[in-house]
Structure formats: C-alpha cells, structure tokens
Design a protein around this nucleic acid. Structure first.
Lengths: 217, 217
DNA sequence: TCGATGGCGTACCGTACGTTACGGTTCGGC
DNA sequence: GCCGAACCGTAACGTACGGTACGCCATCGA
C-alpha cells in the first residue's frame, strides 16, 4: 500500500527564483532525460551550483523538488455533481479519459515517469511514490466521486469503486503509456485522443452501465 | 511505427559460457537495477572484463545481449485452433491474461522494463524496441490468431483485431505494470491473478462477444 | 559610505566506473 | 613436450560528474 503517504501541498515556500530554477531543470529533464547534470542545470538556470546545493541539498533533492514542482502545477478542477443525467455523466467520463490520455502522452509526463521508473529500482528516494500519487492515484481520487454519483443516480452498477476505476483506467490507457515510456513513436493527435475517450467511455458504460434506468423499469 | 524491426532469433551462436555470463548479468540486473557495473558482472560471472569487452563490445552491447538473451528464453506455445468452442476460447483468453499478468509482475520483467525505459530517454540503443517486440507485440502476435479464430467461429465480433487486442490488453493489465515499474508494492498472488484473468476475460467477452451464437438465429 | 548578505561563475577535489593493458594459467593440436 | 589461443584476475588510465571552496559583484539597510 502506498496511499496517503504524501498529500503533497508542496510549493512550500518556493521563491520565484527557485521556481524558475526548477522550471529550467524540468525543461532539461524533458530534453535530456535522466542524465542531466548539476552543471547543466546551473548553466541553464543561470545560477551557481553552490546555490543549487544550498537550496536542494543534493542531486536527488533537486530531482524530487522538480517532480513535486511539476506536480503542484496541475490543478484539480472539481466536477460539479448537480443535475446529473446520463449525457453529463458520459461527458464527464469522456473528459477524464481525454485529459488522462493527454497527460500520459505529454513530453513532460513521459520524462518524469522515466526518471521515476529509473529511480524506483534503487529505491533511494520517493520519486515513484510522488509520480504515482500525483498521477494514477490523483486521477482515482477525482474520478471516484463521479462514479459514486453515477451509481447513486442509478446510471452505473458496481460493487467496488476501486475496481470500476481500474477497469476504466485500463480501457483508457491500454498499452499507450508503456509503449511511450519504452520509446515507441506513438503519435496521439487530438482527434485520436477524442475518439479513444469516446470508445473507452462507451465500453465502460457497456460494462458498468445499469441495465435498468435511474428510475427502474 | 516500430513493427517488424527486429524479428529476433538471437541466441545467434552463443556458447554455453557466454550464456552463463548473460545469466549472471541478468541476475545482477534483477538484483541491483541499472547501476550494475562491468566489474560486478565480471566478478559474478567469474570472467575477466577483457572477455566481456571482447564478446559484447561495450556496456551497452552487454546490456542489449542480456535483454535479447532473456527474450530468447520465453518460448511461444502455439495455440491449437481445432474444435474451437466457447469454453475453450474462454479458457484460452484466461490463459493469456494469466500468463501476461505473471510476466509483467515478475522480477525479471520489472527489472528489464526499468532498464529499457531508462535507456529510451537517451535513445542510444534499442532496448525499448527489443522489450516491446518481445513483450507487448509478441503477445499481440500470439493472441490475434485466437481472436480471429473466435470471430470466424462466430463467438466474437470486432472489425479490427488490433483494436480488440488493445482493449483486451487494457482490461488485463490495467494499472498493474506502471504501478510496479514505479515501485508500488503490488502483491499479485496466483489466486489474485487467476481472478483478474477471469474478470478481464468476462469483460472482454461482454464487449466483443457475438450477440448471436455461432450459428446465428 | 560601508559592511553584510545572497548569489553568480569557476576552479578544484574525490570518486566511481568504463575501458584498456598485461602477466599468469589452462587447454587443444602437433 | 611445445606453441598459440583463449581466458582469468587485476592493476592502471581517463573521464565524467557530484560535491565544495573561493573570489567577485549587486543589493540593501544603517
């Protein structure tokens, strides 16, 4: 289990300058992958290495701060649960699917996940936990209320929201993330993403949609 | 696209001694992750570094050979398509799902995928391609004939085998692989895997099973 | 005006590791 | 028994990079 390990408010007292430095590190990470050096970050950010060490402790600290900084930038848009009907539920699910596909296919996400995966082998720091907590688990946390609302409104049928979520996750992501992480050139256009979102949502509704309508037969 | 890049017969003239060395490297890779050193491999395999360099060129060559060697070890068991009925189709699908879950949750697969993901960022070598080709694409190559047979027998309905396969893939793997790669302690017991295989198969049949029987109404 | 603080640039140190070189040993062929 | 090839073990080399020290400048409060 790793839930509820880091609730990540982060942005904890970061000066503008520090944010700039982390942005530079992030860009470098996207461009060059994990072999980014402290010297490169310092040069790109126009700061001295000494400052990097004073602010972030060591290389892992910088990496962690960078990942957390990126995580803090994705803001959660709450879903309103008023007037829930089937079209709006469908639209919500499609929106989640589309957003998620956009995220996992973005250069930033790919780079961050690669770094985190690489560091997970030598379980030294918590990059993997941070990425999971702000990716997969954050998604679940946002989506589950929608699923629950759909169930209470009688549009969905499932016994366990976690299981339902994981199925939705699988229907949306399929093999996309692992292929991208492994370097497969998988071009996801906006229209392809939109189509996949619709397909995944329809499949999910086919599996978990209530046979009877919200009022019953 | 990266299909049909490496058809990988490999094992290309590997002496027993060389296989032993690669096995040692593989074990070391599983134990220590990507930071395995040439010295460590030489010591573990009781060979000299000079021999390593003569045989495999450089560190990347050794890594590539190791990954290919592991890939060459998984033998494909062909599925017989005789006497296809719904129970045997279901059993085949469950078997594929179960096997796949066992593979992606194995220490070896996790270690290899981590290394390949790490190397994909600095697109220097083809580790990612090799892993994909022997993982996700090999699975597709084996499963698609089964899907086609199921369709011709009238048990399945789909227009594109690739799309159907990817949905099956998503239903089986869900978030398992990325969570494991990121270091989440996800314990998959045999019974849990079996249950997941059954669930994924049922969901797949619910989505792609023919509404009419094999003979039709 | 002036000391102090914070940060930039750079030179430097130590180490880890990839790579190479070399002496010693085993072994198959003559 | 002798030769050369292959291989083991290890020492040595070169370099890249994490981490540190230091000189210099700008800003700021007194």
């Amino acid at each position: 289990m790793l839930h509820a390990v880091t609730d990540i408010d982060t942005s904890e007292a970061l000066t503008e300058r520090q944010k700039d430095v982390l942005d530079a590190a992030l860009r470098l990470l996207v461009e060059e992958g994990d072999q980014l050096t402290m010297t490169a970050v310092a040069r790109r950010a126009s700061c001295s290495k000494e400052t990097l060490y004073k602010w972030f402790g060591d290389r892992d600290g910088l990496l962690t701060a960078t990942v957390q900084w990126q995580a803090s930038k994705v803001r959660v848009v709450p879903v309103d649960r008023k007037g829930l009907d089937l079209p709006s539920l469908t639209a919500s699910l499609e929106r989640f699917a589309s957003d998620w596909l956009k995220v996992i296919s973005s250069d930033t996400s790919i780079a961050l996940n690669r770094v985190a995966v690489g560091h997970a082998s030598s379980g030294k720091d918590d990059l993997g936990v941070i990425v999971l907590e702000n990716g997969r688990f954050a998604l679940a946390k946002r989506l589950k209320p929608v699923l629950e609302a759909g169930r209470q409104a009688g549009f969905l049928e499932f016994s366990d929201a976690e299981t339902a979520f994981r199925t939705f996750f699988g229907l949306v992501a399929r093999d996309v993330q692992i292929r991208l992480l492994l370097g497969d050139r998988l071009e996801l256009t906006d229209v392809a993403i939109g189509g996949d979102a619709v397909r995944a949502t329809q499949q999910f509704l086919a599996l978990f949609g209530a046979k009877t309508g919200p009022q019953g037969p």
